[in-house]
Design a binder for these strands. Structure first.
Lengths: 158, 158
DNA sequence: TATTGTTATACTCTATAACTATA
DNA sequence: TATAGTTATAGAGTATAACAATA
């Protein structure tokens, strides 16, 4: 190995470098979607059969609730999603994709899948394995309980 | 699966969610290192036998060169690294860890390894496989050539 | 003239706090 | 009183451009 460097063994570096490369490429592909990749993720959630309210969405996407307001404002202004007051609790707004939003989402989803397989192509036959493991990890880490746990572990290690 | 949602199948979401969780936990562990996890990564590179110059470092860590200047300023002020002019080209500065920096790095490196294995523990026996695949992916994506390639792919897909 | 790194400045992004409305 | 969402504002983080030193 020629350009071996120590940082490349760091999990944080691996995750960061992969995420940056993905975000850059996806940013190009989604440049005309308000909010870019993040706007697309909101759109993805909004096409779900069980649309989330903003608080849930913010937690899931790792976005501050105040920032999410602006992102949804832009998506709504572009006619891609709409805020629907929850009949059961009128404080909450369910974020639902419009027909225009669904159409755009489906189109970009296909392109993104192609981009993803290109990104992972270096892994060859193991790409599926990787994606499966990463999904397990991400879902696990994203649950609120584990986030707190991990910070506690970090504190204890100091 | 109860809380199944569509975003969780998105590679960008998986990478982002994992990275955020890592950064949050590592941020606690490295809160007293100037620059946090990023400062630690610089320190890691600075403990290498072949210390990098700032331009190389910026590219490798995905940091703007002007931002890197401030980060190194803080690490240098804390006595953890020093800037050594490259004898062969006096424009370049090699970033080298001091003894104090090496000691701190070794201490935190041990703690971080523990944190990492806790983070990956949900993957069980596949944790090693995952780490190996992620390393391959990150190294591949971080090479400048492939970054350009991927953006080209993204453009073509639009 | 081109490149490495620095500095000053402006910009973007994010988070804090205060507010409205519902519960 | 507590919670969901919004808004205004301040703060952190980042990038652009001009600069000095070296090649």
């Amino acid at each position: 190995m020629v350009n071996e460097t120590r940082v490349e063994g760091d999990l944080g570096w691996m995750l960061g470098a992969s995420f940056r490369a993905y975000a850059k490429a996806a940013g190009h592909l989604l440049s005309d979607v308000p909010g870019g990749p993040r706007g697309y993720q909101i759109l993805t959630a909004a096409t779900s059969d069980t649309p989330a309210n903003q608080g849930t969405l913010a937690q899931q996407l790792g976005i501050d609730r105040t920032v999410l307001t602006y992102l949804i404002d832009d998506l709504e202004a572009a006619g891609l999603v709409e805020r629907r007051p929850d009949p059961a609790d009128r404080r909450q707004r369910r974020i639902v994709a419009t027909d225009k939003g669904r159409t755009l989402w489906e189109e970009r989803q296909t392109a993104l899948r192609t981009l993803e397989s290109r990104l992972l192509s270096v892994l060859g036959d193991d790409a599926g394995t990787f994606q499966s493991l990463l999904c397990t990890l991400a879902r696990h880490l994203n649950s609120t309980d584990h986030t707190i746990d991990l910070c506690q572990v970090a504190e204890d290690l100091m």
